[in-house]
Design a protein around this nucleic acid. Sequence first.
DNA 1: TATATTACTAACCTTTTGGTTAGCGCTTAC
DNA 2: GTAAGCGCTAACCAAAAGGTTAGTAATATA
Lengths: 118, 118
Amino acid sequence: MKKCAGKFAHNGCEKTALMAVKDSLDVLSGSWKLPILVSLANGPKRFNQISKEVEGISDKMLSKELKDLEQNHLITRSVQDTFPPTVMYDVTEHAETLDKVIKELRDWGIIHRKKIIG
Amino acid sequence: MKKCAGKFAHNGCEKTALMAVKDSLDVLSGSWKLPILVSLANGPKRFNQISKEVEGISDKMLSKELKDLEQNHLITRSVQDTFPPTVMYDVTEHAETLDKVIKELRDWGIIHRKKIIG
DNA sequence: TATATTACTAACCTTTTGGTTAGCGCTTAC
DNA sequence: GTAAGCGCTAACCAAAAGGTTAGTAATATA
């Protein structure tokens, strides 16, 4: 048994805990991942639909972020080879496990904004 | 009353929720913020002590990150004008409200790693 | 006298991130 | 015939993030 004297003690003060936090941040950070996930959480969508819903994102970034999210098993991509091509994106069940994380990030964001701006 | 049909529905599907999440990520993202906070959570420390504990960080980054954290009221900085100068950093009470966020990020990080690597 | 010490900062460079434009291939609509 | 539509990708740039090195102040020690 190791003593954890820190103020985040129950979060574990060992390196593995820090690594796990870093893993999460790596997946979620950047301006676009969460907005895309939220957009898809409201229903499966095609590339151009997402592009319209997620304001300000460029084609290049959307393409890249969708790839990242797929690699992390947070969304699925399904192609029908019609012409013009139709590609559907949808969130996975794994993405739904992000629920609590998003909730805490949102809650703390609100607390923090009050603290800083007043 | 607005309907929220999405899979993250209880997180709010409105823009304010997304903004709050973004606020949190802006404060926490990057490689160093959380490691520094965790290091300080185990007790107040001086610049060089943090530099040794947070592996791999450069003086320049440490200096910058400490400034950011101070601006966000997550740490305090206190100087004694001895020679050589002594500067103490400590976490604030506000930083302790990050507790649940860190816990969820850690938990999800572990879930996610299992999912991806197996 | 020379050197180490602290908490940085300035100057310089590389890497990563992200934006912009143009274009592809094939079909449908004008 | 030609223009628009889809889901990208390549080429090119600008900005941001982050690393490395050197240097500063006044004192204490070798």
